[in-house]
Design a protein around this nucleic acid. Structure first.
Lengths: 159, 159
DNA sequence: CGTGAAAGTTGTAATCA
DNA sequence: TGATTACAACTTTCACG
């Protein structure tokens, strides 16, 4: 689980995180190598699990998902089985993009993305209200998403 | 900006959102078509901006980013220029993955991912404290990330 | 670890239904 | 729109430094 990534690995990952479609040939040229080492390094990073998956990101506005809401949720019963089934139920909801178990005033932070306010209202009334163990919720509506990146900046200087 | 996606488009997007590396040939076989229509549909979706980009997702734990923190921030001056420069400054910080302008008790919700608590402390002391216009912050530490997906479920039945 | 070349698959465009 | 064909480009493997 502790992998040592050298400078070349990090350079590959920094590029692949921004453009997963780049060819190994183009990558090789950028890094001053031939395709073989690039190809084998990428395969190693995939087998290692460092590279988790390749995805395409859609523009939410173009597929009618203009509303993002962060829901802070506190639950009643904090036992493992109760928390576990709460998570299972939330996970299964398609519009729920992210679920974080957090420490602080609330127990969970949940990000949902949907068409509009009307869809959100239906979600709260039909889905959320049917999920057990919820004590209190607070919705934070997103006015604008000013940064969203899935790419980590892997530093080439410090370890 | 209003694009009509038919069933085939949606099927393509649903698959590409989970596996951006699939070949057009494999995609074609899955959908019972030949490569040409798949290739041209994907190109159209890219040109449209429906497909925003292709990225690879890394496993945060494998690259030493074990701590996620959501920071709720309220600011002092809510004028456009002040808010604008606050966003610019935050955007530039590498460990800041997401910035949301929200309505409610706080003005912004910011997601940061870093090595550990010590790194977070340094971030607060050296970065956050140097950013102007901040009134109050509240950190929510993530205990576990129970769901994280970038893929929207495009329904094939209802529009 | 890297290079270079060879073989097998794809991406991509032109043409026709 | 989609199928067929065809070629350039890429992926992937292998023998060698």
């Amino acid at each position: 689980m502790a992998f040592t990534l050298d400078t070349v690995d990090k350079k590959i990952l920094n590029i692949l995180q921004k453009d997963a479609r780049i060819t190994t040939k183009a990558l090789a040229e950028k890094l001053g190598l031939t395709t073989t080492p690039i190809f084998e390094r990428i395969r190693r990073l995939e087998k290692n699990g460092v590279i988790h998956k390749y995805v395409c990101l859609l523009n939410p506005k173009h597929i009618d998902r203009k509303l993002t809401v962060f829901i802070s949720i506190s639950i009643k019963n904090h036992g493992v089985t109760y928390v576990g089934s709460f998570i299972k139920e939330m996970e299964a909801v398609p519009d729920v993009m992210e679920i974080y178990h957090i420490g602080g005033n609330y127990d969970f932070l949940v990000k949902v993305m949907m068409r509009d306010m009307e869809a959100y209202q239906k979600f709260v009334l039909n889905k959320l209200s049917n999920i057990g163990n919820i004590d209190h919720i607070q919705s934070s509506f997103v006015l604008s998403n000013d940064k969203f990146t899935t790419a980590f900046e892997l530093s080439l200087t410090n370890p």
